[in-house]
């Protein structure tokens, strides 16, 4: 579903964000992208959305080389990728329903599709009863659920979450992760960039660790920190194994 092949990215300021990174993520996988601030997680996501172009290497999403996508096709790439952010990015003057509907409206979906899909996805995230509330009237966890609903309403192939639990307490974070897990079980590929050790350790999914732009670990059923001693050999470092 997502393939990075020897991707490097250096910003104009001279800081290297990614250095020769190769990763393969299959359809339907659930992947944590971990590493300290400045390790290149956000650059990884920006490259997937074609908000940035890599200096070197190639990136495929759903079998398409996105680095050579013409400018006008980029919106269509983004329709296949739902995004969730730490700061929710909801529109404060629109209701929960309108926020989710907006994502469909601006890609030209007809009204009857919106009327059908928005209640479905609000039901999935457990906010059916609050569809008329404004984001300001909701808790942080509920706002993030709206953001997840907006990311998923168009049934994208991939859901990207950049520090989705960064502003939430541990209990609420677990709720969001359960939600992302449910979305993953519909067959959607989910990539979560985080430095929330708790959720990574608890969920035991594939972990990709970046450090100063270099891939240092790619581990199935991993934890946040370096693999503890005594772990089965097949779970150890798998860098470049694909």
């Amino acid at each position: 579903m997502i393939t990075f092949e020897n991707v490097s990215k250096t910003y104009k300021s001279g800081s290297t964000a990614l250095r020769d990174v190769s990763i393969d993520i299959d359809k339907g996988e659930f992947v944590f992208l971990v590493g300290p601030s400045g390790s290149g997680k956000t650059t990884f996501i920006r490259l997937l959305l074609r908000e940035e172009d890599p200096d070197d290497g190639r990136i495929w999403v759903a079998g398409r080389d996105i680095c050579h996508l013409s400018q006008w096709r980029i919106p269509y790439l983004r329709r296949n990728i739902g995004c969730v952010f730490q700061d929710f990015r909801l529109l404060p003057n629109k209701s929960v329903f309108e926020n989710v509907a907006f994502a469909l409206e601006v890609i030209g979906r007809p009204k009857h599709v919106i009327a059908l899909q928005v209640p479905q996805v609000l039901d999935l995230v457990g906010l059916s009863k609050k569809h008329e509330s404004l984001p300001g009237e909701l808790s942080g966890g509920e706002q993030q659920r709206v953001a997840v609903a907006r990311a998923f309403v168009n049934r994208p192939l991939v859901v990207l979450a950049d520090e989705p639990t960064g502003n939430l307490d541990p209990a609420t974070s677990q709720g969001i992760m359960r939600l992302l897990d449910r979305i993953n079980r519909t067959g959607t590929t989910v990539v979560v960039a985080t430095h929330d050790a708790g959720i990574v350790d608890q969920m035991r999914r594939r972990v990709i660790e970046l450090d100063h732009g270099t891939l240092v670990r790619d581990q199935a059923r991993g934890v946040y920190g370096m693999a503890p001693a005594g772990m089965a050999p097949e779970d150890q470092l798998q860098k470049g194994a694909h």
């Binding site: 959305l49 400018q71 006008w72 919106p75 269509y76 790439l77 983004r78 329709r79 995004c83 990015r89 529109l91 404060p92 907006f102 994502a103 601006v106 890609i107 030209g108 907006r150 168009n154």
Partner: peptide
Amino acid sequence: RREVSVMKLVGATNWFI
């Protein structure tokens, strides 16, 4: 600007924006 950034994020075409 908020609307515009969300529009770009969810894949609204440039013309639509």
